[in-house]
Design a protein around this nucleic acid. Structure first.
Lengths: 340, 340
DNA sequence: CTGAAAGCGCTTACAG
DNA sequence: CTGAAAGCGCTTACAG
């Protein structure tokens, strides 16, 4: 018994001696079908290595059991360098999807070029997860459009006032606070921040604010000159730190908006002959794998990617089901290692 | 003009004043349709934000324009730690797919538990890419089954004799040779290899053979005692190196089958008070991001992931089209840094 | 160049 | 508990 090509439910029906409707019901374990019939159908299906045609069933049921992940890359461009933090997120999102019986379509967006948010329109996915740093201002309008089209989606990152989208994010403000408190405990006196302290990167901005507010509450100020701009790459962190040094800014405590930035800073400090943590204490953010490899091992604020991935897919699924969902804030955690 | 729910080709037809067949043709830019008609149809489609329903068109054409990626994880289990090398591959595969107009379904396989190779059976994907280390012996039989079912798939990794599947891999033997030659040039005299030198990990084995053959050709032997087993994790590399040290094996040159292993080795050597590269020269394999961050920066054999991703999807696509395809071997490249 | 019609393989009311 | 039938939204021979 071998039909040519892939077996269909009609083939199963034929060999099991029942109607095609019954095959469909049996395979979906409908309580309507007789136990014995069900067994026979499954038996035949297995022998023919039958699998339900997802295109047909999706078309019929008007849903896809698939989620799409749009990953925004840093605008750096280097093809093969993806921020390890997002790669981790990707791993946990995939797993969370699998656990819920959903498949995951993945797409990388190189900046604003090729906006691929039509997965839902074309019925390929029931909803979309947006992930990435990048300049929020840039794709703000795209989000508005998704909202207008009633596309189901959830964003990783910062909640932005006046935006109606659903977000899951780390408590970045609280994370900045954790970093400041740790540094304060060591009686450091001159602080610097490296990252983007503007609303182009709401996440970095929140980390900055938590850091600054905590410092000022303890009587430490943070002037313009003690803030160096950097995007989330090692290189950018390296250059920002060098310019701080070149400008003769004095500091014994450095908070980087991401681990990649911190790693670049470590390199610049080493080159300048500064001892870490002796001369300068350094704290990063993310807890990527490299943070524990580097020397000195990096003290950093960890984001729980496993939980983040789960919340992202669970919230999206609830949104799709029409249930009430609210923004989620995940607690950060300080990981103390050698650098501070 | 706003149909309730998502617009279908019938809605477009209605507003454009043509038949639904013409809409379908126009949207696919069939040369059969009049230029003016085509324009009008596109115009209406755009206004209604119409997107072809992929489930319907896939069902009709019997193909999905989707590829599936199965990522095998190392058997270590820690949820959030995925080998950065594969994550890079994932990035380049995604991009290669996008370039060809294909979507990518991603799935992680935690060891042999949940074998998810039915993407093609269920018409979700036209073909499958298999990626990962892991024990080849374990899923050998699965591959046979895929072959038997005539599933279209391509594997990353080593060609194994007697297997008929299509593979794309790095020239691991050549890479091992590169490592040996570099170490030989520095007149090192006592060599060790850390990794799995058995056919459970064909890739590691090939690296090992290239390394050993080159050494023996120059009169250096590599005895059993100079080979330490390790899977591809930092921890495993750390412990393997410690046991070498504990067993009083003398060596001034170490070749690790992967960067993760090498990073673990570096840690163990540092703890033992050995200077790298002074006392021991270390060479890794992969060139993951951490290799350049770590101190001393790691000399390693790079695999071209961008090219690898492209070859993987191109070969698979050709296989699907029924064209002749052969196994592909990618050239490795030695990246010299501080550690050797 | 265009339209009417068949059919891809399912799921699910509807009738028994 | 089971079957006959409609229909999801397309693509593409077939006829004009």
């Amino acid at each position: 018994m071998k039909p040519k090509g892939k077996a269909t439910s009609f083939d199963i029906a034929h060999f099991a001696g029942v109607s095609q409707s019954t095959v469909s019901r049996a395979l979906r374990n409908s309580p309507l079908v007789n136990e014995e019939t069900r067994r026979r159908v499954w038996e035949v299906a297995k022998q023919l290595n039958y699998k339900v045609d997802k295109n047909a069933s999706n078309l019929r049921t008007q849903q896809s059991s698939t989620l799409a992940l749009l990953l925004f890359e840093d605008p750096t461009g280097d093809e093969s360098q993806i921020n390890p933090f997002f790669l981790n997120m990707l791993g946990s999102i995939t797993r969370a999807c699998a656990k819920q019986g959903y498949d995951l379509l993945v797409s990388f967006q190189s900046s604003s070029q090729d906006w691929r948010a039509d997965y839902e329109d074309s019925h390929r996915a029931d909803g979309i997860i947006l992930l990435g740093y990048g300049d929020y201002m840039d794709y703000q309008s795209r989000l508005q459009q998704l909202l207008a089209q009633d596309t189901k989606f959830v964003c990783w990152g910062a909640t932005v006032d006046g935006r109606e989208d659903l977000t899951v994010s780390c408590d970045n403000y609280g994370g900045g606070k954790l970093a400041a408190e740790h540094l304060l405990q060591q009686n450091r006196s001159q602080y610097v921040f490296i990252g983007d302290a503007s609303d182009h990167s709401p996440e970095f901005f929140a980390r900055f604010k938590g850091f600054r507010d905590t410092l000022t509450a303890q009587g430490h100020s943070l002037s313009e000159r003690q803030i160096a701009n950097a995007i989330s790459t090692e290189e950018s962190g390296y250059h920002a730190t060098r310019s701080l040094l070149a400008n003769n800014i004095q500091f014994d405590a450095l908070f980087a908006a991401s681990d990649l930035i911190a790693i670049g800073a470590l390199k610049a400090l080493k080159e300048a002959g500064k001892d870490v943590p002796g001369d300068v204490a350094v704290v990063g953010f993310d807890n990527i794998a490299a943070a524990s490899f580097i020397s000195p091992a990096l003290t950093t604020v960890q984001q729980n990617t496993t939980l983040a991935g789960q919340m992202l897919v669970n919230n999206l699924l609830n949104l799709i089901k029409g249930e009430a969902v609210t923004d989620t804030l995940l607690p950060p955690k300080l990981i103390v290692r050698r650098s501070a």
